[in-house]
Amino acid sequence: MSAVKEAFQKARAEGRRAVIPYLTAGYPSPERFLDYARVLAEEADLFEVGLPFSDPLGDGPVIQRASEAALRQGVRTKKVLELVGKLAERTDVPLLLMTYLNPVLAYGKERFFKDFAAAGIKGVILPDLPPDEDPGVAEAAREAGLATVFLLAPTSTDRRIGVVTGYTTGFVYAVSVTGVTGARDRLPEEIGALVRRVKAKTELPVAIGFGISGEETARQAAAAGADGVVVGSALIRAIEAGADPRRVLQAVRKGATL
């Protein structure tokens, strides 16, 4: 079984929905990213690293700012590979890479996935690629030994759920809102319906992301039937504010514990 699926099982066995923090690689600086990531990984079941991109059209203002700050410091694909390598040395938590498609294509998709797998990445999340748009991408990721993760949204039709899960080997990333990334106070009620519709089509684990901000939203996600919760903007907001993101993640973990 893949490290990614195993992480969901392990969390479940410990009475918890998988806790998946997200940080943008190189934010707030390459060194401090590593420090934060290492500390947060201690509270995590899986860990998501974002590759900064100039045009992150699926992201809200918080992750946009983090992305711009990382790019300003010269954090590009090679540097992200290096940071991932260092992080993998310091944690056993499976690492996921979140990246927009263009940096993958520019690097060459086969080589991109191979190099990231070698650096310690276990799965890849592609937020702007409906997988059937270019099936070669998911195939290249699988051939490099990476689990594939794609997004589904409350607007997704049952037909799209069928198509997208057909290309997924890791877990389904269920977007809680029709919208971009960003912390919210509450999740919309309709998220439960999406999780049910996805689970009717697949045995894959389902993680809810977008809008998870603390204990309450994590609890809502758990109640909606999710197998995992992704939290990103709330962590970055804490870092921006000079607060301790570990507090946020601990609250999420509490909400995600059954």
Partner: peptide, 12 residues
């Protein structure tokens, strides 16, 4: 061409 957008938009 094609349709490289977040899945949220595909039905639209």
């Amino acid at each position: 061409g094609g349709r490289y957008v977040p899945e949220t938009l595909i039905p639209a």
